[in-house]
Design a protein around this nucleic acid. Structure first.
Lengths: 252, 252
DNA sequence: CTTGACCCTGACGTAACGGCAGGCGGGAGC
DNA sequence: GCTCCCGCCTGCCGTTACGTCAGGGTCAAG
């Protein structure tokens, strides 16, 4: 049950240099050495490393990690609990960012101008606690990145004209549906809501039912979105909102 | 529509030094200067800064950010789409981490030993792309942190005895329920599932119905958890799983 | 007994700023 | 017109968490 640096490095997915560094600063010193001076890590060292990596991923500076881990009043269960709390907090933050991006996408789709303050709102909410970045190192080198880049940034003028045409066609049909007196939960209106979702998915981003209902609520909550749809036809914002919700429920 | 460094810094929630730095490396140079040499940022600069901050939050090195932003084939909509993709990717990753933590918590609750490989699985899954940390700077100074720390790490021996007693009591009652022939979706069994959830919430971590059904499925999928419950009484793992699902559905 | 994979310890390099020194600029109040 | 203070400027050194050699031992296999 003893491991060399290299083995530990592979197991934990870190570099040997990182382990050397942790040894240097006393954050994680192997429990022993061979006669030749080779580091020997045992199971307890691995457990400690795991804790270190988790807290590191959560953004703590190494010095603080040492303090947290060496806190005598913190058993393993307490660490797990804390990490769970921190993670769910970050999850919330990320979800807010996703919502903000979707907001911005919708705004740009409808050509709505954002104020400078709004642009930074998602950062502003968190001004007191400085957030920094998570690094997906060398992501720029992967095929997936290049692929997504190619796909995403290559809309020609023709594409844009087509998007506009599709969108206007859809607009005419939903106005007609509303004018015909068909309720928002009629098959016809729900089908138009479904088209709305697929149109976004095809041209903009993967739009799940959950994301779509979020958008629908935004149409009601933000007056600029409301204005956009009301401008097409009075009552359309509410009609579309209801149709989207009805459609999402029926497909669940 | 012109801003000084200080104003921009406040708006965006960054330090003046950071803006100076971005100017130095040419990532974001203000569009003009006053006769006295004061930096003047305009709206376009703000937009660029917003992009920079978003990509920074997503973990890109500044140099790469410059390349991404200056890519002539990427309109604003493409940036938004890309950020949406990156964010949802990170969201998935975080959810996996939360699941891993819940797994580990459940394992420690039941005294199940994890292998070294399992300890690092959540990191190992992502070995090819190196992930690094997000920093919640000076989080250690906030009251919330200290409070959560105090609450989380102060279980006395008495507490542990009480947790064990509550858990055993609950165990006896669910075994009795199963033995009595009450189906897993009977009010009795569902009430015991609800108790299971509240017990975790009270002593370990906030356990929503969603989290609990995840746990329940883990009981079936991981043989060590299955073994733990089967060992108490044959068929208990499946019984509990079904009861938890039934209870979650009825409360939705 | 050599060879290749693995280990060691310095020591310097890097990214993304933080923080301070020393010195102008500018408008509000006297 | 002068003073004051706040905000801005440009160096320049410090820091964190490693990356990256360089130069040199070690160990199991052939």
């Amino acid at each position: 049950m003893a491991y060399t640096v290299g083995q530990v490095a592979k197991l934990a997915g870190v570099t040997i240099r990182t382990l050397h560094h942790y040894d240097e600063i006393g954050l994680l010193s192997p429990s022993g050495r061979t006669p030749a001076g080779y580091r020997r890590y045992d199971d307890a060292d691995l457990q400690r490393l795991q804790l270190v990596l988790y807290y590191r991923e959560l953004g703590f500076p190494l010095e603080e990690i040492a303090a947290i881990i060496d806190d005598p009043a913190a058993d393993p269960a307490a660490h797990l609990r804390r990490q769970h709390e921190l993670l769910t907090g970050r999850l919330k933050r990320l979800q807010e960012m996703v919502a903000a991006i979707e907001f911005a996408m919708e705004a740009s789709k409808l050509n709505i101008q954002l104020t400078p303050e709004e642009r930074f709102e998602v950062f502003g909410d968190f001004k007191p606690e400085q957030y920094e970045a998570e690094a997906e190192q060398r992501w720029g080198d992967t095929d997936a990145y290049r692929e997504s880049n190619r796909r995403a940034s290559r809309y020609t003028k023709d594409d844009w004209l087509r998007i506009k045409a599709e969108n206007e066609d859809w607009g005419r049909r939903i106005v007609a549906s509303m004018a015909s007196g068909a309720p928002a939960d009629s098959p016809e209106a729900m089908e138009l809501a479904e088209e709305h979702r697929q149109l976004i998915s095809r041209w903009f981003y993967e739009c799940s039912y959950e994301v779509q209902t979020g958008l629908a609520d935004m149409y009601m909550a933000d007056e600029r979105f409301t204005a956009y749809y009301e401008n097409i036809a009075p009552g359309l914002a509410a009609y579309l909102n209801e149709a989207i919700h009805a459609n999402a429920i029926s497909r669940a």
